[in-house]
């Protein structure tokens, strides 16, 4: 077995400002890695570089493709990267409006990825969309409604269904529970946790919410000012933080 994603020396600068510097890690199949840090710590920059939305200044992002084995995604053509993005990769945005087409029905949103990889049978597409909407606990009676008529939590679940319908192996998540009420968050987290375990997904999840990574992530990377200051097993990093910044982060969490 080889890692699904091998990242080495990944750096991105914005002029004099460091976005992220010299990040390296291996992500193995079925592994969930959390990236935590406060706003501006570079975690979103890192995620965008990993997902190919931003071009890093240096470093490699090597993905184990189905057909050709490990390939540096930076050396791929835009067409290849986009193909990956709609087949083996998925990206869940914090704001569902960024990840959904608001003018298209929920079913159409889920079906789009299938159609983008060549599905041309309406009945099959609709059937799969229905199946995925029910898996994310959306009443299939509402599949022809536009996401604008849904609550934030439902929109986020539609976004997840849309992302998972093509059976991706690697999912990037950017604060997936960010803008949601606490009760809605809990439901979404539980759903995500179930899907991740059942489908054996590899996930890179960016969040500032330590409870989210405690629940979802196998391992953790802590970022500060663009640098990874600590990484390891999730409960080890949270229960026995070694770096001063991590200690501060962990001790700042309010317990109710």
């Amino acid at each position: 077995m080889i890692p699904l994603l091998q990242v080495t020396g990944l750096s991105k600068r914005y002029g004099a400002h460091v976005g992220c510097a010299d990040v390296a890690f291996d992500l193995w199949p079925g592994e969930v890695m959390g990236i935590v840090g406060e706003s501006g710590s570079g975690k979103s920059t890192l995620l965008n570089c990993l997902a190919g939305h931003l071009a890093p200044d240096a470093g490699q992002v090597i993905f184990d493709t189905r057909e050709q084995g490990p390939r540096d995604t930076r050396a791929m053509t835009e067409a290849e990267r986009r193909w990956l993005a709609r087949t083996d990769w998925a990206y869940v945005h914090q704001n569902p409006r960024d990840g959904l087409r608001m003018g298209v029905s929920a079913g159409g949103n889920v079906g789009e990825r299938l159609m983008a990889v060549g599905a041309r049978h309406y009945g099959d597409i609709r059937g799969q969309a229905q199946d995925w909407l029910s898996r994310v606990e959306i009443d299939t009676g509402r599949m022809d409604d536009r996401p604008g008529t849904f609550s934030g939590g439902m929109q986020q679940r539609v976004q997840i269904a849309r992302n998972l319908v093509t059976g991706p192996r690697l999912v990037f998540m950017d604060e997936p529970t960010g803008g949601l009420d606490v009760s809605v968050q809990a439901r979404l987290l539980d759903l995500l946790r179930g899907l991740v375990r059942r489908l054996g997904l590899s996930v890179v999840i960016v969040t500032h919410d330590l409870a989210v990574v405690r629940l979802l992530a196998d391992r953790l990377m802590v970022m500060k000012d663009g640098h990874v200051v600590e990484e390891g097993l999730t409960d080890q990093v949270l229960d026995d933080p070694q770096h001063g910044y991590t200690q501060l982060l962990v001790s700042s969490v309010l317990h109710v």
Binding site: A79, S105, G108, G111, M115, V117, R120, R126, D144
Partner: peptide
Amino acid sequence: RVMHALEDYGLMQVRLYEDIAR
């Protein structure tokens, strides 16, 4: 333009899907 260049035409099909659904 990029979508044409990359033959990324899933979206076009979505429009037809929406018609049938509605």
